[in-house]
Amino acid sequence: MTKILFADKLDSCVERWRSAGMTVIGPVQRTNSSMYDAVKSASELDLNLVLADRSIKELFFPQSEPMLRYNITKSEINTSEFLPPSGPRIIFGARACDASGLAIDDPLFGWDYKDEYWFQRRNESVIVTIACTKADEFCMCTSLKLAPDSTKGSDILLRPLENNKGWQVEELTDRGREAFKKVADLLQEGSDPAAATVSVPEKFDADACAEWLKNPENFNSHFWKEISLRCIGCGSCTYLCPTCHCFDIQDEGGSFEGIRRKNWDSCSFALFTMHTSGHNPRSTQSARWRQRIMHKFNYFPGKFSANSCSGCGRCTRECPVDMGITETLQEISKLSQ
């Protein structure tokens, strides 16, 4: 016997969590594109999506975050901080790649400086992941040693029932248990079998790629130019990626009054490493694409012992010129044979 959440009880759960003061968030369909967003009832959730177009990271690291307000007068400089918005949240219907992405970024945001904005939200969010029973051709979690039912980064794992009527509940963390205690009476014990998770074929050998990337000779390989000639530097791949985490600090307003903000940035942009002198150490798009791959599969694992990629496939799915991590790593796999 396992604990089961039947789908027809989900609305009551949402209500219960909301009346306990939690913001309930999940995958929703907006006009022509899907994302994780707050909902008032379970009917707003779209749990049939393979994966939301936009990643879960924006719930923790929004595209634009005000940090402080400044005001400079002749006699003084005043600043007032924006504290990270607080309040308990439950994210219902995350995918394993998205939840893993958050766990991948935790050590980064806590490394030399603890990013309060990230951790305040991390500490107040319960992540309820639903194991995938379908995937598309771009999904590649298994190539990154993850799986459609990975528990990394999740507080609860739900396994869809074979009869489609609900989910088996696996409580993974105290935070998850705490949230599900609130709906304990809405859960049932049952023996309904769980559906098999989708099988996602492995597309490349990540270890072999890492070895190739570590070889300093390959840094100047012709490969980089050839593979990225068509990249237009649009940044979609980084903005949609659950693990890409670069940001820029911008002062908006005037010299004497304004708001300092933390906005997403991308290594795909020509301005990313542009110096004030005009010199740009990554002056070509191929150097930028190399950076993206090197960072994710060489530098990041060197520092934090994990690839900075959870295999969600968004970078390939949404690239306007049909590039992406998949093709590049497949080619590197071939080169490293």
């Binding site: 907006r30 006009t31 594109s33 936009r54 595209q63 530097g233 649009c234 940044g235 979609s236």
Partner: peptide, 15 residues
């Protein structure tokens, strides 16, 4: 509503 979705990637410009 449409512009509220914009994530300021400037992909439209790059393309």
């Amino acid at each position: 509503e449409e512009f509220s979705k914009c994530i300021k990637c400037y992909a439209c410009r790059q393309a």
